[in-house]
Design a protein around this nucleic acid. Sequence first.
DNA 1: CGCGCTCATGTAAACGATTGCCACGGCAAC
DNA 2: GTTGCCGTGGCAATCGTTTACATGAGCGCG
Lengths: 355, 355
Amino acid sequence: MLSKEPGSPLDESKPPHSLRHVAQLAGVSVATASRVMSGSSHPVSERTRQQVLSAAESLSFVPNRLARALVTARSHTVGVIVHDISDPYFGDIVKGLEDGIHAEDYQLFVANSDRDPEKELNYVRAFDANQVDAIVFAASSLTDPDYADTLQKLATRFRGRGGAIVLLSDHLLEGPRVLFDNHRAAADMVGYLAGRGHRRIGYISGPPELEVSHVRLAGFNAAVAELGLGAGPEYIADGKFTLEGGGAAIPKLLDRVDVTAVLAANDLMAIGATRQLLSMGFAVPDDISVAGLDDIPIAEYGPVPLTTMRVPTYEIGRAGASLVLQALGDDVPADIRLAGEIVVRESVSSIGPPA
Amino acid sequence: MLSKEPGSPLDESKPPHSLRHVAQLAGVSVATASRVMSGSSHPVSERTRQQVLSAAESLSFVPNRLARALVTARSHTVGVIVHDISDPYFGDIVKGLEDGIHAEDYQLFVANSDRDPEKELNYVRAFDANQVDAIVFAASSLTDPDYADTLQKLATRFRGRGGAIVLLSDHLLEGPRVLFDNHRAAADMVGYLAGRGHRRIGYISGPPELEVSHVRLAGFNAAVAELGLGAGPEYIADGKFTLEGGGAAIPKLLDRVDVTAVLAANDLMAIGATRQLLSMGFAVPDDISVAGLDDIPIAEYGPVPLTTMRVPTYEIGRAGASLVLQALGDDVPADIRLAGEIVVRESVSSIGPPA
DNA sequence: CGCGCTCATGTAAACGATTGCCACGGCAAC
DNA sequence: GTTGCCGTGGCAATCGTTTACATGAGCGCG
């Protein structure tokens, strides 16, 4: 086993170096080279190990992950499906997810469904074809009938192969999930408002077709009841999840009750409400306070910097990563529930101390 | 759905179906099955083709892309490196890129460098190990000395393997690139302002350390000179690329010249300037107009909806995709220069017609 | 001195596709 | 009736790894 054989027939015709080249240069078999490069538990003498290492170094050898994946049946890749990667909400989630799995040397495929069922299914197939170890659904499932069916089939198939599925929102598929507690978010915000002295709080709810609207509304109602604040349908108006929706709700609300604060089911509506209030001559927060939910980027830059509740998007991604890693490590991951965090800005004032 | 053929020697021990299973079920060789499934140019009779197709269908066969990649030396994957995927700027680019390559059935790996040279290099290595066909650098190269060196080496290696490199910003690496014309952006905006009658325009420049500051400033100066507008150092103030930076520049500017409009090198500064103007008692745009550059999401929601120039981020991504595809198709891609587009909102007014 | 261990290494068979080359049957041309 | 080509299809090598199994050296111990 001489390492210095002259004229060893190294095939230099193909530039990228494979394990074979490393082995040859180190004067060992491919198997041995593999064992040291892959950190196998199989024993290798220190001397040999060093030889291989330095050979690899001098050839600047980079192992082919695909070849490895082929035999180990683990690609060390994860695919995530988002509705729209240009939306910072998903951007943040993806960032957290990526950070989390990167720490364990996984790579992330990103797919944009644009909320198109067909497209989403195709991505699942593509991920499957690419042998990803896990698929993460960052958003809720879509509501197409055929879609549900096909997705179930694909999921079963994928799991049969040993793939893990993780959900970061409500979803028709089963699997470990991380959930943001929307009920609690609304309730906590009511609690905050009450803590600042508000006892008549109006609520601008989201469109009833959306599940999240119901949950947040329920949270609002529950808190209001528990704290003995002003309650009843007259305190509630609903609108679309838009600037205009929030604005339009204000007159309706103000016609019916005399509130000192308004909570909107999302920030866009809260900002719309603020604008409307301002244009009607109310001072925010001095006459009426406004709070939102979500903490979208513009919350800080609206007409009045908005007090709202941050949805921990990055943390959702991180939590998702940890579920993925657990699932792939043969643990049985438990669902993760995340709470929001109130970010205080300038749109809520205190009402005279109860003292 | 169990196969109804009695006693066919199908190896049912491994659930996921491979080409072997398909071939067996169709009663042909693996080679033939492959030719059908991969759309090879090798002729296959129509009858056989149908048999294979229906076998594949009934097993819901999904080809293993990794195996294919191993032999074809093409993984059909692309890696993109961004500074921060949660930044909508990069989110948009990634979206465009993804849309573009997805159309040709490529998958996208996303990596977040967090502007950390070490991390970025590791991602390049990881992409290499994963045999991506192309690496896209969405942002400018970092300024670490060792980094530049190592990156060059890695790039050379990667290209030696047949990999393509595409740049979406200024970069130390060579390669096809898509560039946003910053010089022209500033100049065009000056043109727009001049068109609305402004002849004394102040400019809030960015920090001199940044290349982009110089380019935009040059664009401003060039336009102002060409159009014969008020010019000279007194028309220019610089600040950090922040809200505060923009605000602080206003008094300096106003002390020296009497302007009818202010152009800021980015939107954040423009918004900061607007706030400052407002708080000093000026009406925007009636007393002084303000324009920005970039069209960030909050531009629309600032104190006064900002007239600015949209950087075509999505299009940059798309253009990047097209460069990638060209490069992988053995074309020699030419650089792509993209211009911005003025989005008119409410922060700029016309000054009395020259008539 | 030989038995059985452990440790280190090598041999070769996978993994799941693609593809160069060969084989075979039919058919037209000579 | 050969010859040769064309249209099909199979055989087997290959891509770059990992890993089960075999091999062989060295060593302690009875």
